[in-house]
Design a protein around this nucleic acid. Structure first.
Length: 564
RNA sequence: CGGGGUGUAGCGCAGUCCGGUUAGCGCACCUGCCUUGGGCGCAGGGGGUCGCAGGUUCGAAUCCUGUCACCCCGACCA
C-alpha cells in the first residue's frame, strides 16, 4: 500500500475522550474512530489487524475440529423469552419496529439448530463456532473497545452426550485458546472464574494483566494459583472458640458506628467483631455475618444464595425494619430474617455484634448457642498479601482484561429449548453444552496495551497490519525514488505486505514519527546515506536498533527479522 | 442507575464567572515559494447554525429553563 493513496488518518494529539493507552493509540494511529458510545468504525489499518487476529483464531478453532457458522444477529424475541434470558438487566438491545432483538450471544440459536437436527448420539460430539458481531446493552461503555455495545466475538459451542465428553471439548478449547493468545504474542494467564447467571458447572477466564483492566484477579507467584477475585480463596484462619462461653451481655457503645471504631472503643481484635450486613434476597430480609472488616464478595454471595435477586437494603428500609441504624445491627433478637454467615465465623464464640438498638452492642455471642444460622459459606473477598490456600505464599491482587472465557454449560439451554438426543438404548437425553468466547477487538487492544512506547504502537509480526514499513526519505531524489519503488515491488513479490511511505513534500522527521506511531515491526529506510554505499537501512521498531544492509540482502534480512 | 465533568473549525483548546467590535489560538487543510535523516521555513487563504430547543434582553458562545450527546468514578457487567 502506498501511503500517498492510503486512508490512514494519524493524529499528533491525544484525543480527549481516550483515557487508556490502547484507546489513545488506536485513534492516533488511524485504526478506528468512534461512532457513538461503545461503537467504533474500524478504518482500513485497524481492520487489517482485526483480520489478522481473526485468522489466527479461525486456524486454531479449525484445528480442534470446529466448524464455522455465520449465525444471524437478528433474533426473534420469543427465542430469548423461551430461554429465560430476555429480561436479564442490561443485556439485550432490541428492535423497535419488530419483535426482534440483537443477539448478545448465540447459545439460543445454536440450541435451536441443534434441537432441529441433532437426533442421535451418533450425531455427537459437535464443535460449532462463528466469528461475528455481538450487541449488548452496556450501561456504561468505556476504555475504547475494551467494553463496547457492539463488538466482534468468536463464540463456539460444544454439543456432547455427557459431562465426561463435555470435558474433552472444554479441554480442547482451553488448549486452542492458549495457542491463539500465544500466537498473538500476548502475555496471558488463566484463572478460575465465576459462572454467574450463565449457569453451568465451571469456567475459566483467559486474562491479560493490565491496569486498564476491569477485572480483579488473585495470583500466587509461587505455585501459580490464579483466580478471579469473584471466586478466589485464601488461607485465613477461622475465628475459633475460647474455652469459656459467657452469657450475652449488652454494652453501651455511644457514637460507635464502624468496625474500626468499635475495635478501638473496646480495645479488641477485629476478628471478634461480627459485622452485620443486611440484604434483600427475593425481597425477603437477609442478615449476613462477616468477621471484622472482611469484605463481602457479592459474586460469592450469589453462588451461596443459588439464584434469585439480591441487593443491599437501603438505609431507610433497614432502620424501619430493625429499629436501628446500620452499625448497630446484629443477629440476636432480630425477627423475620434469614441469617447466613461467612465460614470464618463457624463455631465461633465470644463475638461482639450490634444489639439492634442504636449505641448498643452485645458481647459474648456464641454462634452455636445463640444464632440460628442458615448456613456458613465462603463469602469474604480475598485481600492482597493473604496466604495462598495451596502453598501459603502471599497472594498478589492485580487488574486484568478478560480476553476469553470458557464455560461448561451443562444442560441449562438444552433443557430450556428442548435439545435432546437418543442414546444407545433409545432413551431421550438432553444434549450437554459448553460455550466459549473470545473478544476479537480485545486481542488488538491488549496487544497494544502490552506493546507500546512514547512514540506509538509496537506491533508484533502476527498482528501487524503490515509487517514492513518502507520509507523513501526524500521523494525529490531520483535515486531514492527509483530504489524505493523497486524495493516496494520486490518486497511485495516476496510475499511481504508493505506500507510504502512515498509521500512527496513530507519531511523525513514527519515520516519517521508516523512510522513509529503506526508501529510496523520492520522499518526499511531508503535514504541518501545508505544509497551512496548501495545500502538500505533496516530499523526494528521494538528495539530501535538500525542496521545497514546491502540492497541485495534486504529481502532475506527482512524475512529473518520478521521470523524472530 | 448514583456522583462528577465536558460540548466553541477535522484535532487539541482559550473566551462563558462579569452579556456589547468581524468569536480567537496551536495543529491539520488549500495555494505559491522553499526545504529534505526525527512532526521544516516564509507568504497568502478556506473552514464556525458556539450541541439542540425555548426564554430574558436593544443585544446572548456568555444569563435562565428544558433537552440531547460524550467522557470519567462508582453500581452493574451471562
Amino acid at each position: 500500500m502506498r501511503l500517498s493513496h492510503a486512508f490512514i488518518p494519524t493524529q499528533k494529539e491525544i484525543p480527549a475522550e481516550a483515557a487508556i493507552p490502547s484507546h489513545q493509540l488506536m485513534i492516533r494511529a488511524g485504526l478506528m474512530r468512534q461512532l457513538t458510545a461503545g461503537v467504533y468504525s474500524f478504518l482500513p489499518l485497524g481492520f487489517r489487524a482485526i483480520l489478522k487476529a481473526i485468522q489466527i483464531v479461525r486456524e486454531e478453532m479449525n484445528a480442534i475440529g470446529g466448524q464455522e457458522f455465520l449465525l444471524p444477529a437478528l433474533n426473534p424475541e420469543s427465542l430469548w423469552v423461551q430461554s429465560g434470558r430476555r429480561d436479564i438487566p442490561n443485556f439485550i438491545l432490541s428492535i423497535k419496529e419488530r419483535d426482534l432483538v440483537l443477539a448478545p450471544t448465540h447459545e439460543e440459536v445454536i440450541a435451536q439448530i441443534a434441537g432441529m437436527h441433532i437426533q442421535s448420539y451418533k450425531d455427537l460430539p459437535q464443535i460449532w463456532y462463528q466469528i461475528q458481531t455481538k450487541f449488548r446493552n452496556e450501561p456504561r461503555p468505556r476504555s475504547g473497545v475494551l467494553r463496547g455495545r457492539q463488538f466482534i466475538m468468536k463464540d463456539s459451542y460444544t454439543l456432547d452426550t455427557s459431562f465426561e465428553n463435555l470435558d474433552i471439548g472444554y479441554d480442547k478449547h482451553a488448549e486452542a485458546y492458549r495457542k491463539i493468545f500465544t500466537r498473538c504474542g500476548l502475555k496471558f494467564f488463566v484463572v478460575g472464574a465465576y459462572s454467574g447467571a450463565m449457569g453451568g458447572t465451571g469456567s475459566q477466564e483467559f486474562m491479560v494483566e493490565s491496569t486498564s483492566g476491569e477485572d480483579t484477579v488473585v495470583l500466587c507467584q509461587k505455585c501459580g494459583y490464579a483466580a478471579n477475585l469473584e471466586v478466589a480463596k485464601s488461607s485465613v484462619a477461622g475465628v475459633g472458640r475460647i474455652a469459656e462461653s459467657k452469657s450475652p451481655a449488652e454494652i453501651h457503645t455511644p457514637n460507635v458506628h464502624t468496625i474500626d471504631e468499635l475495635a478501638v472503643f473496646l480495645n479488641i481484635e477485629h476478628k471478634w467483631l461480627a459485622k452485620s450486613l443486611v440484604y434483600q434476597h427475593n425481597s425477603k430480609p437477609l442478615l449476613i455475618l462477616m468477621s471484622g472488616n472482611d469484605q463481602l464478595n457479592e459474586a460469592k454471595l450469589g453462588t451461596a444464595l443459588a439464584g434469585g435477586e439480591f441487593r443491599a437494603m437501603p438505609a431507610e428500609e433497614l432502620s424501619k425494619l430493625t429499629g436501628a441504624d446500620a452499625g448497630s445491627i446484629g443477629p440476636l433478637g432480630l425477627k423475620g430474617f434469614r441469617i447466613i454467615a461467612d465460614k470464618r465465623l463457624e463455631g465461633a464464640n465470644n463475638l461482639i455484634s450490634g444489639a439492634n438498638r442504636n449505641d448498643y452492642h452485645i458481647a459474648n455471642i456464641d454462634m452455636q448457642r445463640d444464632v440460628k444460622v442458615d448456613g456458613y459459606f465462603d463469602l469474604r473477598t480475598v485481600e492482597s498479601g493473604e496466604a495462598c490456600s495451596s502453598c501459603g505464599s502471599p497472594l498478589k491482587i492485580t487488574n486484568a482484561i478478560e480476553l476469553g472465557h470458557i464455560f461448561k454449560l451443562g444442560t441449562k439451554y438444552s433443557d430450556a429449548l428442548n435439545v435432546t438426543y437418543l442414546d444407545e438404548n433409545g432413551q431421550s437425553k438432553p444434549v450437554v453444552m459448553g460455550s466459549y468466547g473470545i473478544g476479537i477487538e480485545r486481542i488488538i487492544a491488549c496487544a497494544i496495551e502490552q506493546n507500546n512506547d512514547k512514540d506509538g504502537i509496537v506491533w508484533n509480526t502476527a498482528l501487524a497490519p503490515y509487517p514492513v514499513h518502507l520509507t523513501a526519505i526524500n521523494m525529490n531524489n531520483n535515486d531514492i525514488v527509483t530504489t524505493a519503488d523497486r524495493l516496494y515491488k520486490s518486497l511485495n513479490e516476496a510475499g511481504l505486505d508493505v506500507l510504502f511511505d512515498d509521500r512527496g513534500n513530507v519531511s523525513p522527521g514527519f515520516k519517521f514519527k508516523d512510522a513509529d506511531l503506526l508501529g510496523m515491526p520492520v522499518h526499511v529506510i531508503v535514504g541518501e546515506k545508505g544509497l551512496k554505499n548501495n545500502q538500505i537501512e533496516v530499523k526494528l521498531r521494538r528495539t530501535g536498533i538500525r542496521t545497514m544492509v546491502p540492497i541485495d540482502d534486504l529481502i532475506p534480512t527482512v524475512k529473518k527479522l520478521l521470523a524472530d
